[in-house]
Design a protein around this nucleic acid. Structure first.
Lengths: 254, 254
DNA sequence: ACCTGAACACCGTTCAAGT
DNA sequence: ACCTGAACACCGTTCAAGT
């Protein structure tokens, strides 16, 4: 009997009930699967249990089907993850706060877009690292704006506002770097539910004595643990827009 | 016979020779394993074959040992990955360009440190996403500066240069966000050798017609594919230091 | 003291067979 | 047309047994 050999922390053992009981969504009973439904289920599965817990068999179960049936709709587990990233990024197109007309200049657009991406990251904190790190289709399709459609829209807004080609490209690079860094940090500080088993030792203070050689850290610990992410994001975004404004002015003079 | 059922792209099938032939490093013949050697081997294995290819059994083989032997030195595969991240981050302590005395003020220090982290990211592009995304020990130990020691050193340099406590913490947040975003984009654009099997379709242009609905992207494709990462990094770092200088001035006035 | 072999409970994936 | 069962080659992990 090595039945209980698996450590309870192990990915296989985590995510218990919800992962193993076939929780076919209400009303979705015998409707045949399609790609959209598979990807949607994968997104919520990851949101709930983390990426590590997502296996073909468990996702199948979750949909009331054997894992093998998923291969009708995705090419492989990797293909599934690509689809998950795409699904989440596509959510942005449905966000009225990003697309609401009329737009008031490029700053307004970049601000809406940034807030839209942030909302998305916070809505799917366990998926966002995937959005951030999956190898992009082309090296210049930079996360977290992973689609030609967003890139085109970005370039259109900026060149239409007087940015030279070079300035628009420089702005794209600065903007994506900004979003990626800030949102990844925000999401990872929020503690993606990897190792969710220990609900108590959560926001607790560090184990007494762990900060012993680090006087500054100890003194600033309260300050450091304050969650200023929202304000921080706003401020950094503001700074970035000012920087882009300088780029625009230079590109107009040049 | 379903022997060849595995797709050749699949992680299991990749990383062939070097992963399966026991390439015991020269002179390391019968010396017993230790944790340092295991972690070092894991780092170079990942650099060479990517994280997906790293299994306990293959890493064991690489070290001339059965995979099970590794459990003497790491608690699990997750523990191994934690150790890998730690090992790579610790390399910074040995970097003379970061620590070389005398230092000329906090700007000089932050500049050296940033370049050190960048060198590290470029030296281990396949490991860096791990450095960026593994859940940190405490929420305020932010990647990619993942250690209390670096945090302490950072705070010490800044508070010693006149930053108030609040300003030093704000600077720490801005600085880590900057590093994470820029370096993650840089290594992901460099195409971590995930799916290394297709060496040809490499820096090639996009499949004809793929850019059809995207006129700006098509027009700017040459500009977009230029690798400006080094210059970009310098410029963004410069901007960041100026921003921190403003924070310092305000914190002095306040 | 350190490593191996065998064993177990999983996995991803294919394919012929069922409805 | 869509799903299942059985099969295969792998995995991570434990533990008793070997040297």
């Amino acid at each position: 009997m090595v039945d209980d050999a698996q450590d309870p922390d192990t990915p296989q053992a985590r995510g218990g009930a919800a992962a193993t009981i076939p929780t076919t969504p209400p009303g979705a009973g015998r409707r045949p699967l399609d790609r959209r439904r598979v990807l949607g289920a994968a997104v919520s599965f990851i949101d709930e249990h983390g990426i590590e817990a997502l296996t073909m068999r468990r996702l199948g179960n979750h949909l009331g089907v054997e894992g093998m049936a998923l291969y009708r709709h995705v090419s492989s587990r990797e293909g599934l993850l690509d689809g998950v990233v795409e699904t989440v990024v596509d959510e942005l197109y449905g966000d009225p706060d990003v697309f609401l007309e009329p737009r008031h200049g490029w700053q307004d657009y970049l601000q809406r877009l940034a807030h839209g991406v942030r909302r998305l990251a916070l809505a799917h904190p366990a998926v966002f690292p995937l959005v951030a790190t999956r190898p992009p289709a082309a090296p210049w399709v930079r996360p977290p704006l992973r689609s030609l459609r967003w890139l085109e829209s970005f370039l259109d807004a900026l060149t239409g506002s007087g940015f030279s080609d070079g300035a628009a490209v420089a702005a794209y690079r600065a903007y994506t770097g900004f979003l990626l860094g800030h949102l990844l940090l925000e999401v990872s500080a929020r503690g993606v539910p990897i190792s969710s088993h220990d609900e108590e030792a959560d926001a607790a203070s560090p184990p007494a004595g762990a900060l012993d050689g680090y006087p500054h850290v100890r003194r600033l610990e309260p300050l450091l643990s304050e969650d200023e992410s929202a304000a921080e994001f706003e401020e950094a975004l503001e700074e970035l827009l000012e920087r882009l404004e300088r780029i625009l002015r230079e590109s107009r003079r040049g």
